[in-house]
Design a binder for these strands. Structure first.
Length: 929
DNA sequence: CTGGGGAGGGGGCCC
DNA sequence: CGGGCCCCCTCCCCA
């Protein structure tokens, strides 16, 4: 067919382009797989508005789909479409331009796509699932479900899972399998959290890892951890063939940093150093998701470990190392591993001390924090600082201002961030350092003592303020909502930690709490209250919500109320296959808390792998599409990255637009400011770019959760006005969309679209046949109902709507045939996002050999099934600085949803939901605990 | 269990 | 440039 020909041409073009790009040594290779596949079909359907892929247009070829455009401008425009078409997961390169380029054969295309999915945490509530989503507080809205599929693949040989399947439904097992992947195997990892899976060429990954290992990052990490950089790691990292493409789960950190997490393990020695060595296993604390609840709830890791078994959540096993060794006061030379995890960037020694201190059990930043949560807590604090204005203000005094006052000038912001990170670390370790300590700190950061002193003072003030507001220091985040019920309510079980504790977690962290170990995987519940409070957008889903809550409560045994308490918390929901990470109202996609959560997830994956593999090798590779330099971000360790000369950092609204109310004007101005040279408006929270500032602003709602358009009838709020319009039709009964073939009418354009695209071809034509004619509709159309938008006569209105339809109809017919074939692939690939290898940074690496996803599915499965026991085995070797979570183990027991992993695919959502429910409550309980 | 519709959400295009 | 309209995807519920 002509289509085929076109495709071929495109392929050729692509190849050529790819070659060119490849030849450009430094160009990062990105595999925008989705685009190609996705579009190809569409393309076949018809020419692009901007042009057709004809020979001439090849002058300006789209790197994604190889379409040719005569005008560069057209190409540029064509490129909002590749980048922005997807939900903002963030991985897409900001400027599509040079880097975007290359597309390798889709993983599926690859010989053996192996789906690697993080272990699935089944947290999904069945019935609730939907309601939850709907009900999720605005703050949480942003969160996206991440699936953790445990192991559908288990049975499948690592090497040869059905392409489609594997891709579509990667499983934890898959992950494990991945390790063993033969060359040419493509590993696809489902999205974790906010970011869609990123496809990475193994070779590139290797390169990155090598570089990282050699580079400062590694040194920092390792050095901090062990004080020594493990030499010779290079090359060890990824041993898979270069051609392999690996899709790794990626997520966007609160920083806006896109990260890819690969299980990593720290060499035992390192682990020992960093953590209490002798007890690798002991160190590993398995906390169930349920436990995750609040940081406060979380007791010491060990304690949690004991608790961990909590039935419901169980799936996730958190392994947390506890800092030991060092005295609180003394900043240990060893950096805090957790910190590192959290903030790869810099971190230093003090962190370790902090941990140690934390290990002691008390959070330096607040009294509420559980021992194990220290790192997380810090993150939370940081997050709070960034996330909410109030909190941030309290927690993160304007360091810049202090510097300014002191007459200290830092050339670049990044240094400031780094300094802040250090200071925070110190602060974490000792909020009230003596003069000597201050002097030492000042010296270490090369900043006048006065400045440091003031900073600490401010920090303490902020802390107090936060405490006042909330019992929890981090309260800022949670502060918004009084958490009346939550604390005790949720879990009576564990700790009776007051709301305060929960509050803290809420911000950051419910998730963190959930992961007691620092993992915050928390299932965001639809908190009724929360949503309303923080986001101020109570949807009317209340009934469902309550129902759900009730269910959750029942399952978990935790009171539904808890959710309310944690509105702000970033929560990770594990739904069937997905983990949702709810962003705080602040609008920041991921909060610090998320990081931990993500880490946990990673750990989880790794866990699976570990279990299978022996848990040794997991590499945590945070991938940064770009990182913000924002102080908070810095704290997180993210580094600033300049994309195409555009500093994303600045743009970051991290300020928690929501909290702040997301200044419209500011945002607008911001949007304008950010306009890049190429005329596009990049989103600072994700890598998407938009042609119009307004589009960017609109897009921002995705991150902020802001829902400016509220239904006057039911108060339901929407991000997009047109959503409100569509919604309004529900109230009015208006059904402007009608199928010209079968006459069915639709109030929602989406329904209509779906019908036209997927059913039109075979929907019954009642009388009119027409396929396409505008008149056709008339036959069935009952006419215009009152609402018919068209307004005109019965036919008129519809005809209007119809006008749009014809094309789609036409396309639909054609498409279907084609799509059918490609659909799977497309879908699978859709989620994938291209990433720049350059953006990959290795945060932590094992001392020993670094392998990626070693292990067998089977093993994993077994282990998972085996549950804790096996998991622990893996854990032993795991000593992770931060926290690793193993998923799935619990399930077998019923606790772990993951266990469900085995069934993941089949069970998929359902299991997940259930698990999720359980988890959530459990988490909450834990938190409360 | 599956198909279809409802509905939410994201983004593009046109005016 | 911004707003409105439309398309499409995806999830979920229901028949």
């Amino acid at each position: 067919m002509s289509e085929e020909e076109e495709e071929e041409e495109e392929e050729e073009v692509k190849d050529a382009l790819v070659e060119e790009i490849l030849q450009q040594g430094d160009t990062a290779i990105i595999y925008p797989e989705a685009p190609e596949d996705e579009q190809s079909p569409a393309e076949t359907g018809g020419a692009d508005e901007n042009g057709t892929p004809d020979s001439f247009s090849q002058l300006h070829t789209c790197p994604y789909c190889s379409r040719g455009y005569k005008r560069n401008a057209s190409l540029k425009e064509h490129i909002n479409s590749h980048i922005s078409s997807k939900k903002c997961v963030g991985a897409a390169p900001a400027n599509g331009v040079t880097r975007l380029v290359i597309k390798s054969p889709s993983p599926s295309a690859q010989s053996r796509p192996v789906a690697i999915a993080p272990a699935r945490v089944l947290i999904k509530e069945k019935a609730e699932s939907k309601p939850l989503q709907e009900q999720l507080p605005v703050t949480q809205i942003k969160s996206e479900p991440v699936e953790y599929e445990c192991k559908p693949l288990t049975a499948a040989p690592p090497a040869t899972p059905p392409a489609g399947h594997a891709v579509a439904q990667p499983t934890a097992a898959a992950v494990g399998a991945a390790a063993n992947l033969p060359q040419g195997v493509a590993m696809v990892v489902p999205t974790v959290g906010l970011v869609s899976p990123v496809s990475i060429n193994l070779s590139d990954l290797q390169s990155v890892l090598k570089v990282a290992m050699d580079g400062n990052v590694l040194r920092q990490v390792l050095g901090s951890a062990n004080g020594v950089v493990a030499p010779g790691k290079q090359g060890i990292v990824v041993q898979q063939p270069q051609q392999q493409i690996i899709s790794l789960p990626a997520f966007v950190d609160h920083d806006g940093t896109t990260k890819i997490i690969i299980n990593y393990s720290i060499s035992p020695a390192a682990a020992a150093t960093a953590t209490a060595t002798g007890q690798p296993t002991p160190l590993l604390v398995k906390s169930q998701l349920a436990a995750a609840a609040t940081p406060a709830a979380s007791a010491t890791s060990q304690t949690q470990a004991e608790r961990a078994p909590t039935p419901e959540v169980a799936d996730l096993t958190l392994v947390k190392k506890e800092p030991q060794c060092e005295p609180l006061g003394a900043p240990a030379a060893a950096p805090n591993e957790e910190e590192e995890m959290a903030a790869p960037v810099d971190l230093s020694e003090p962190a370790a001390a902090a941990r140690v201190a934390g290990g002691g059990g008390a959070c330096l930043l607040c009294d509420d924090c559980p021992d194990n949560l220290e790192a997380l807590h810090l993150l939370q604090h940081r997050k709070a600082a960034n996330g909410e204005a109030v909190d941030s203000a309290a927690l993160d005094p304007s360091f810049a201002a202090l510097l300014s006052e002191a007459g200290v000038t830092l050339a670049e912001p990044s240094p400031v961030d780094d300094l802040l990170s250090l200071l925070r670390t110190y602060f974490a370790s000792n909020a009230n350092p003596g003069e000597a300590e201050l002097a030492r700190i000042a010296q270490s950061v090369s900043i006048p003592v006065e400045v440091v002193r003031k900073w600490f003072a401010k920090m303490n003030c902020g802390k107090r303020a936060g405490e006042r507001n909330k019992e929890a220091p981090l309260a800022a985040v949670g502060s918004k909502r009084p958490a009346p019920e939550d604390a005790s309510s949720q879990n009576g079980e564990e700790e009776a930690e007051p709301a305060a504790s929960s509050g803290a977690p809420s911000d950051c962290g419910s998730p963190p709490g959930a992961l007691t170990g620092g993992l915050v995987i928390v299932k965001s519940e639809p908190e009724d209250g929360e949503g309303g409070d923080s986001q101020a957008e109570p949807l009317d889903l209340s009934l469902p919500k309550q129902a759900m809550a009730a269910k959750a409560a029942c399952k978990a045994g935790a009171p539904a109320g808890k959710q309310q308490e944690q509105p702000l918390n970033l929560s990770c929901q594990l739904k069937g296959r997905t983990i949702y990470v709810a962003a705080p109202p602040a609008g920041i996609v991921a909060t610090a808390a998320q990081l931990p959560a993500l880490v946990a997830i990673a750990g989880h994956q790794g866990g699976a792998a570990v279990g299978c593999l022996g848990a040794k090798r997991t590499i945590l590779i945070p991938q940064l599409t770009y990182t913000y330099a924002a102080p908070a971000a810095a704290a997180a360790g993210a580094k600033t990255v300049v994309l195409n000369g555009h500093k994303v950092q600045d743009s970051r609204p991290e300020s928690s637009p929501d909290a702040g109310g997301g200044g419209g004007p500011e945002e607008q101005s911001d949007a304008k400011k950010r306009r890049l040279e190429n005329g596009v408006y990049p989103c600072d929270l994700c890598s998407k770019v938009f042609q119009k500032g307004s589009s960017l602003l609109r897009h921002k709602y995705e991150h902020t959760g802001k829902r400016p358009h509220e239904c006057s009838i039911c108060n339901k709020a929407f991000k997009h006005k047109h959503h409100l319009i569509e919604h309004s039709r529900l109230h009015s009964g208006e059904k402007p969309y009608q199928c010209d073939k079968c006459g069915k009418r639709f109030s929602h354009s989406g329904s209509y679209s779906q019908h036209m695209n997927h059913r039109y071809s075979y929907c019954k034509k009642d009388g009119a046949g027409g396929g396409g004619g505008g008149g056709a509709p008339g036959t069935r159309r009952p006419m215009a109902e009152p609402g018919s938008p068209g307004g005109g006569g019965g036919g008129g209105p519809q005809s209007d709507s119809r006008t749009t339809t014809p094309p789609s109809q036409m396309d639909s017919d054609e498409r279907e045939s084609e799509e059918e074939e490609e659909e799977e692939e497309e879908e699978e690939e859709e989620d994938k996002e291209a990433m720049c290898m350059d953006d990959i940074r290795v945060v932590q690496v094992d001392d020993g050999e670094c392998e990626i996803y070693e292990g067998n599915f089977e093993e994993e499965e077994e282990e998972e099934e085996g549950g804790e026991t096996e998991g622990q085995g893996g854990q032993q070797e795991f000593a992770c600085d931060v926290v690793e979570v193993e998923l799935g183990e619990g399930p077998a027991g019923g606790e772990a949803p993951d266990a469900g992993a085995p069934d993941c695919e089949a069970a998929g959502p359902d299991n997940g939901e259930e698990a999720g429910n359980a988890d959530v409550p459990a988490k909450e309980a834990a938190a409360n605990g």
